[in-house]
Design a protein around this nucleic acid. Structure first.
Length: 453
DNA sequence: GTCAGCTCACTGTCTAGTCG
DNA sequence: CGACTAGACAGTGAGCTGAC
């Protein structure tokens, strides 16, 4: 577990490269390049981490995002600058997570996602009664017996310390939204299909995000303290791991081919919009749930709120049993719940058999009386103004560097630092003008500013 | 008179925001 | 999302003040 304080984070990332030499001395690990895993005897934790990294990020085509469980920030690295020492250093620091995709910049966004060659299905069997006491290996055996490892079988599987990650390697998949956005949608559909396959074992339905990060083998699970490790590691042939072609995989799983936008091609539109509708409905349901569970004064909106929740839940999952379970739970989570029979009579009865509505955000905002301040906690049910403000906020943040300064502010700060140092050395303002090339007015002004600090 | 430092009007660039 | 723009702000330089 990491013992770093959060405010040390930026400093630590900067120092990481410099520390490699020292770690090398203290651990006795020779410098091993990322490409040369088998040439040296590594400890099992580092070896597993490297094999996994190599499997999911074999090409040097972008930046991989890393993060620790106890830090909010991400840091980035490309495979050129990875080495065994560095990976060892990172995994021994704490509960490390790694992005499935690479990114063209230093932001972990769908828009900046560059390439991807893996699908990871998280199986949270600890949520399933009857399974939660079993060791991960037994779960794998049960899934095999159920025929769930028939095509497509996972390339390998990882015990995450409380659940299982099933790793399906893909042939290198360009995902840059601008050019290859279709791959992102197709990948989401495949993941949805695979999630359904492992549903009984507790598969996590939120795993289709291209920017998702996963625990890396060789580390310890932050919550349980258990080791994250590749299972059946010794039986795997790392030079011949199964690797799937996304389009073939989709076809085998019965997903209709996504056609390029044709004029009013109904079948094409139906499929390509499918996932967008799924996420929209899913996140709207989550937003409505948030409103209903956080409001103290919920009485005036609880019926309409539960109704809207039910509709979006059904649109997303098409699973009446799951809806029933979730909505009864949500009802009980409200400050003033409805009686259970009312939920059945007023909500479930209509939604299960009823038609599918499509609501505008404005309508939902009006019906639930959502205030601007409340929207800050919501993902999709937000006004146009709120959306615009979020965009401005992001752009404003983008203009600032790691010191939270704009380029101008940084330039001024640099000049102030230089002048401060020269003054300490006994320079006169006149000399500072010559030394820095700034005007004497500026030097004078800054000298005065420094005195008032 | 010389020097160090200060003031203020001004310039050009950058930021933040609007608009289509 | 790019073009556009108002306003903010960093920086300049002429001219001023006061100490010696």
């Amino acid at each position: 577990m990491s013992n770093l304080a959060t405010d040390d984070f930026g400093l630590w990332v900067q120092q990481l490269n410099d520390e490699v030499e020292e770690v090398s001395k203290s651990t006795g690990v020779e410098y091993v390049s990322y490409d040369d895993i088998d040439a040296f005897k590594l400890d099992i934790r580092t070896e597993q981490a490297m094999k996994h990294l190599k499997a999911i990020h074999s090409a040097n085509d972008g930046n991989i995002a890393f993060c620790y469980q106890d830090f909010e920030k991400y840091f980035f690295d490309d495979t050129f600058s990875l080495s065994a020492n560095k990976i060892k250093n990172m995994i021994y620091r704490g509960s490390l997570h790694i992005s499935q995709s690479t990114f063209s910049g230093y932001r972990r966004l769908e828009q900046t996602a560059y390439s991807n060659s893996v699908i990871v299905i998280d199986v949270d069997f600890y949520n399933i009664s009857g399974l939660n006491e079993l060791p991960a290996m037994n779960i794998i055996e049960l899934m095999k017996m159920d025929g769930l490892f028939e095509y497509p079988a996972p390339s390998y599987w990882i015990s995450t310390g409380n659940g299982i990650s099933l790793v399906f390697l893909l042939e290198q998949l360009p995902v840059r939204a601008k050019f290859f956005g279709g791959n992102i949608n197709l990948r989401k559909l495949v993941i949805e299909k695979l999630n359904r396959r492992f549903m009984e074992y507790g598969s996590d339905f939120r795993t289709s995000d291209i920017t998702r990060v996963n625990k890396i083998p060789g580390t310890y699970n932050y919550k349980t303290g258990n080791m994250v490790e590749i299972l059946d590691y010794e039986y795997l042939d790392w030079n011949n791991l199964k690797r799937y072609n996304l389009r073939e995989l989709a076809e085998e799983l019965g997903i209709e081919r996504i056609t390029k936008k044709k004029k009013r091609n109904k079948s094409g539109r139906k499929v390509s919009n499918l996932f967008n509708m799924y996420t929209l409905n899913y996140y709207r349901a989550q937003d409505i749930k948030h409103i209903l569970t956080t409001r103290v004064d919920v009485e005036g909106v609880r019926e309409v709120g539960l109704f809207l929740y039910a509709i979006h839940h059904m649109n997303a999952f098409e699973d009446a049993d799951r809806l029933e379970e979730d909505i009864l739970l949500l009802n009980l989570s409200m400050a003033k719940p409805l009686q259970e029979k009312e939920v059945y009579k007023k909500i479930l009865k209509h939604v299960k058999k009823g038609r599918r509505y499509k609501f505008k955000n404005e309508t939902i905002i009006n019906w639930l009386g959502i205030q601007e301040a409340e929207m800050d906690d919501l993902k999709t049910i937000i006004s146009k103004d709120n959306r615009k403000n979020r965009q401005l906020k992001r752009e404003r943040a983008d203009r600032r560097n790691k010191n939270c300064l704009t380029s101008r502010e940084q330039a001024k700060a640099d000049n102030l630092n230089i002048i401060s140092a020269l003054l300490d050395e006994g320079y006169r303002q006149k000399d500072i003008v010559v030394e820095t090339g700034l005007s004497k007015g500026t030097v004078s002004k800054y000298t005065k500013e420094l005195r008032t600090l």
